[in-house]
Amino acid sequence: MKASPADQNELLRLQAADTRLAQLAHAASSLPQAKELAALQPEVEALRARWIAATGELEDARAELGRVESDVKLVEARVARDNERVQHTASVKDVQALEAELASLAKRQSDLEEIELTVMQRVEDLEKALAAVDAERAEQDERIAALEAARDEEAGKLNAQREALATDRATIAGALPADLIELYERQRARYGLGAAALVRGVSMGSNVKLTESDLSEIRRAAADDVVLCPDSGAILVRGEDSGL
């Protein structure tokens, strides 16, 4: 293949752009904030599990308190009813029965009120425990939000660089012969590098000094001949400092 030395030299700019684009893509996929967010996930899930458990316990305790309070109201209503009946009955037998029931109700009310106080204390304790978990989650949410903001800001900067560089790359590639670009892309897809400079006999594609036999063959090539690095497979771009 033939290509002018100037066009071949432009391949180095193209390769530099592709190398930098790959670096930016790697940086975007391995942001430290993203890694930290991923590392936080077990903590997030553990804290969420604690919150669910604490919420469930509190709901159960509140439901129990509601049942006890309802029982207390029922007993109070029966006490009020029996007291009224005592006031309006003339039967000694009925009065004795009502007084016996009132004594039983008083014991029942006392027991329920004691249970009510115990459950109220448990509700209060569980509310404090849930508040503590809520505070932890709020602190964790702030940390996550800060990390996400930093990640997005850094990703935005990287994307802006990638877009600008992609535009420059398209301009460089658009000005080169199609067959030269096709060869460059093919070699880059195969070997990871499309073009490399030859500097003082060393291929920058492999960072290895070429053998005298390889250098002799390259010396025999015309300036507009496209030659490939025998080690890296990249298009070897020759210049004044190639050591030929």
Rank of each mutant, 00 (worst) to 15 (best):
M1Y: 12
A3N: 05
A6G: 04
A6Y: 05
D7N: 12
L11H: 04
R13S: 12
T19Q: 15
T19F: 10
A22Q: 10
A28C: 02
S29F: 11
S29P: 06
L31G: 02
L31E: 02
P32C: 00
K35I: 08
E36S: 15
L37K: 04
A38N: 15
A39K: 05
P42R: 04
P42W: 09
E43H: 15
E43I: 09
V44I: 11
L47W: 14
L47Y: 09
A49G: 07
R50H: 11
D60G: 13
D60Y: 15
A61G: 11
R62I: 10
R62Q: 13
E64A: 06
G66I: 10
G66M: 13
R67S: 14
E69I: 08
D71N: 12
V72R: 11
K73I: 00
E76T: 11
A77T: 15
R78L: 15
R81W: 12
D82Q: 13
E84C: 02
V86T: 01
V86P: 00
V86F: 03
T89I: 05
S91E: 07
K93D: 10
K93P: 00
D94F: 07
V95R: 05
Q96I: 03
A97F: 08
L98V: 04
E99R: 14
E99P: 00
A103G: 03
L105H: 09
A106Y: 13
S110F: 14
L112A: 08
L112R: 04
E113Y: 14
E113A: 13
E113I: 11
T118H: 06
Q121R: 15
D125W: 05
D125Y: 03
D125G: 00
L126E: 15
E127Q: 15
K128R: 09
L130S: 09
A132P: 00
V133E: 13
D134V: 01
D134Q: 10
E136L: 09
Q140W: 02
D141L: 06
D141V: 04
I144Q: 10
I144R: 07
A145Y: 04
A145G: 01
A146N: 08
E148G: 00
E148K: 07
A149C: 01
A149R: 10
D152L: 01
A155M: 07
G156Y: 11
G156K: 06
G156H: 11
K157S: 03
N159Y: 13
E163A: 13
A164L: 07
L165P: 01
A166K: 01
T167C: 05
D168R: 09
A170Q: 13
A170F: 11
A173V: 05
A175H: 06
D179K: 03
D179M: 03
L180I: 00
R190E: 02
L193C: 02
A197S: 09
A197E: 04
S203T: 01
G205H: 12
S206V: 03
V208E: 13
V208R: 11
L210H: 09
T211M: 02
T211L: 00
D214A: 07
D214C: 03
R220F: 14
A222C: 02
A223F: 12
V226G: 02
C229T: 02
P230N: 05
S232K: 00
G233N: 08
I235A: 01
R238Y: 10
R238T: 03
G239I: 06
D241T: 15
G243R: 06
